[in-house]
Simulated scan of single mutants.
Amino acid sequence: MSELAPLLEKTLHEEIPLTREIGIQVVHATTQRVQLSAPLSPNINHKCTAFGGSLYAVAVLAGWSMVFAQLHAAGIHAHIVIQDAKIDYLLPVVETINAECRVNGETDFAHCLKLLARKGRGRIELPVQIITAQGIAVRFIGNYVIHT
């Protein structure tokens, strides 16, 4: 677990109470990759698979966590909100929910942080995947707004 992971998990549990209820844990947290997990049992539906709303929540939170990691690394305290998103449910999830958000470069965040500094508001689009033993179960793209 990286140094950022305990801080991120504490922040999630204090600022977003739902994260405690669905059992969110921060598995990995850097400015390049955030991985969250949540157990199946509090997120199960009547088909004994992960509830779609829980999958959506974990995906949103993985992107939110990436924004948090980037802001933390830049020494910036700001508000993070999801503006809109697109989600594709590809496979049922019958195990621990594992969501991952990866960033392959700093350019989008650099531009976003410049806008935040100049206008008090920035925007970033982030991809998240929920991965199972069978493959990619969920593809998610979220647009996050950062404001002071």
Rank of each mutant, 00 (worst) to 15 (best):
I24T: 00
R123V: 14
L115R: 15
Y144F: 14
A29H: 02
T49I: 11
A5C: 09
E21N: 13
A110L: 12
T96D: 15
E3M: 14
N43R: 01
L126V: 08
G53I: 09
L36F: 08
V34L: 02
F51G: 06
S41P: 09
D88G: 09
V128M: 04
V34C: 05
D84G: 09
L61N: 05
T11Q: 06
A5T: 08
R118L: 15
Y89T: 03
L113W: 03
E21L: 12
H79Y: 12
T30N: 10
T107L: 12
G53F: 07
I87R: 00
L12A: 01
R33G: 05
I87S: 01
Q35M: 14
A117Q: 12
N143I: 15
G63E: 04
K86A: 13
A99G: 12
L7V: 11
L113P: 10
Y144Q: 10
N143V: 15
D108H: 14
P92H: 01
A78H: 04
G53M: 10
H147D: 11
P92E: 09
V81D: 11
A69Q: 06
T31E: 11
P39K: 08
F51C: 08
I87N: 04
A29I: 02
I44P: 04
I136N: 10
E106T: 13
Y56R: 04
V26C: 00
H13A: 11
R123W: 04
Y89A: 00
Q134E: 13
H46N: 14
V145D: 11
H46L: 12
L90F: 04
G63M: 03
I44Y: 05
Q83K: 13
G142Q: 06
R118A: 15
E9I: 09
E3T: 14
L71R: 00
E14Q: 14
Y56V: 12
P92K: 02
L12T: 08
T96A: 12
V145R: 06
H46P: 00
F68E: 08
P39S: 13
R123L: 15
G122V: 06
A59W: 00
S37W: 02
H77V: 11
C48G: 11
F140A: 02
I130F: 00
Q134K: 11
V58C: 02
P42G: 07
E3H: 13
N45M: 07
E3I: 10
S41A: 12
S54Y: 01
V27I: 11
N45Q: 10
V103D: 08
Q35V: 14
Q32W: 05
L12N: 07
I44S: 04
G105Q: 08
G63A: 02
